[in-house]
């Protein structure tokens, strides 16, 4: 089985967020970057598990500059066989989808995985666009996947519930929690990752339809109003009369 896993680099979950250049750009000062957790813990690990079960290859793909090589090497350490980096700073999800589609259409991947969203832009936009560009079925928020030959049985989260779907042939899968269990790369994996191939390709031109105007930070909270534990009635009064939420 031949699978492709799309990975992103995101700020660590504990990062303090600020912007530079009048709100245009993210301030990377003092920020440590990680592989997007949904890509790493669920999408990549499930692809590696399936390879271990039925054989085949796992290719990791990333759109970004050379500073992303660190997270790409981690994907190789976790179990991807090779990696491709499209050498560009992506201005949009559309750009990312176009670059990955350009590469994926030349190969016959059985499954293409990505995380359900990145923890920086939370857009969940790349998967559907990529699937459309490749004319493949797409499943959002998959938390269970079994593969039998060309048949895939998957479960996906929907609002207030879950669906089980059967699909035959290649498809694009966005991975949610529980699709796999997080794996910590072992020493052998880390050593091997340095020798695995990482191919760098140049991007294709994309006409942008959406542009960023600015980023804003939320107004600081005015501070907490503490209520004495013996005076719960006062909290209820504040919620009813001041906040007007009950």
């Amino acid at each position: 089985m031949k699978t492709l896993v799309c990975i992103s680099k995101t700020p660590d979950t504990t990062s303090k967020i600020s912007f530079v250049d009048s709100g245009k750009n993210f301030n990377t000062d003092g920020i440590s970057f990680i592989m997007n957790p949904y890509d790493e813990w669920y999408a990549l690990v499930r692809a590696v598990e399936l390879k271990e079960k039925v054989g085949g290859t796992v290719t990791a793909i990333n759109v970004g500059d050379a500073s992303n090589d660190l997270v790409i090497r981690k994907a190789l350490a976790i179990g991807a066989d090779d990696a491709i980096r499209v050498n560009a700073n992506a201005p949009s999800s559309y750009f990312v989808a176009k670059q990955i589609a350009e590469i994926a259409k030349k190969e016959n991947y059985d499954l293409i995985f990505l995380g359900k969203e990145t923890i920086d832009y939370n857009g969940a936009e790349v998967g559907a666009q990529l699937a459309e560009l490749l004319d493949l079925p797409f499943f959002s928020f998959v938390n269970h996947l079994e593969v039998e030959g060309k048949t895939n049985i998957l479960k996906r989260e929907i609002e207030g519930g879950e669906e089980t779907i059967k699909v035959t042939g290649p498809c694009v899968i966005s991975a949610a929690k529980d699709l796999a269990q997080q794996r910590i790369p072992n020493m052998q994996g880390i050593m091997m990752s340095k020798r695995k191939p990482l191919t760098v390709v140049e991007p294709i031109a994309v006409e942008e339809l959406v542009s960023l105007i600015t980023h804003d930070l939320p107004a600081p909270k005015k501070g907490v109003t503490l209520v004495n534990a013996d005076n719960v009635d006062e909290l209820v009064r504040l919620l009813h009369e001041e906040a007007k939420v009950i």
Binding site: P11, D120, L212, I213, L217
Partner: peptide, 13 residues
């Protein structure tokens, strides 16, 4: 954006 820690304004042209 950034899991609710900031917001962003975009122009769709």
């Amino acid at each position: 954006v950034y899991s609710g820690k900031a917001s962003a304004t975009y122009a769709i042209s």
